[in-house]
Structure formats: structure tokens, C-alpha cells
Amino acid sequence: MDIFFYITAFVTLFSTIMVITRHNPVHALLYLVISLLSLSVIFFLLGAPFVALLEIIIYAGAIMVLFIFVIMLLNLGKETAAQEKAWLKPTVWIGPVILSTILLAELFYLIITAQPPSYNLQTVDSKAVAISLFTPYLIGVELAAMLLMAGVVGAAHIGQQKKTVLHRFLKEEEPQ
């Protein structure tokens, strides 16, 4: 079982790196789906089957589809890829990579020096999750429901196509 974990971990890392390096948004998106799927395998291996399924259904299923819709709506294709290629010069990488390396080193240091020694991971089944979700975390669930509602209303409102432009200086640039 150990080997399964390392393989999926490798797949996850690889596909994630591919996500942030791709020029074509659709390619990146597909790599992200792969990353999410392999992550759900890891969840499964860690003893969280319920969440693993949620990851596939909601993340890889629903949310990624939203991205695809938007990419199709905006018709991002070859030009975008070319533009990305121009933007992603090697010099752009230097600063963020240094910063991230420091952050990563610190994270590693803290994780490795953490006091409680390693324990075996245990399965937490969906029943326990459901009980926990609807007893101590009920308020949290309701808040999450309200957040989603607000998200839906907000997205619908923001996404409305308006003829008039909010900013008067941009009027000339606005196509009919």
C-alpha cells in the first residue's frame, strides 16, 4: 500500500507542476483535474473514502466544469497560449522560487521536528463524518449554506451582461 501512496503522490506533484507551467489554459485545467483525481486517491489511502468521493464529484466534476465553461465563453485558445509564453520568461521565476523555497524549507523543518511521533493512519468513515457534521458543526454547515447562496446570487449579479458601462472613460472602447 505504501508504494501506491508514493506513486500517487508523484503523479499529484507532477500534474500540479504541469498546471502552473502550461501555457494553454485548457491543458492546465486538464492537469489540474488529474491532480485532483490523484489527490482523491491519496484521500482514499489516508482512510477518508467519503471525502475522496466528494473531491471527485464536486471538485473535479462541478468546479472544473465551471472553469471550462468560462474558458470556452472567453474563447481562450492559441492566442492566449502564445501570450502566456511571452509572459512566462525565465526571469519571472527567480523571485517567487526563492521565496517559495524558503517557505518550503521552514515548513519541512517544522513538520519534521514536530514532537508527536509517527502513528498509523486510521479510517474515518462517512457515518462518523455525517454525525460530526450535523451535531457539533451544524452552525458551520448552515453558514456554508449561506455562503454558497451568497456565491450563487453574487455570481448571477456580477455575471449579468450590461449594455452600459460603469466607467464613463471606457465607453469608447466598449464594442456594440
Partner: peptide, 19 residues
């Protein structure tokens, strides 16, 4: 189960954020 509960909240938040 709390870890998974938190993940579910993250999921809900991510959905709202993405939309």
C-alpha cells in the same frame, strides 16, 4: 472526523469562491 468536516467546508468555500 473533524478533518474531513473541515475539508467539506473548504470545498463549499472553494465552490462559492470559484463561482
Amino acid at each position: 472526523p473533524d478533518g474531513q468536516v473541515m475539508f467539506i467546508f473548504i470545498l463549499a468555500m472553494a465552490a462559492a469562491e470559484v463561482s
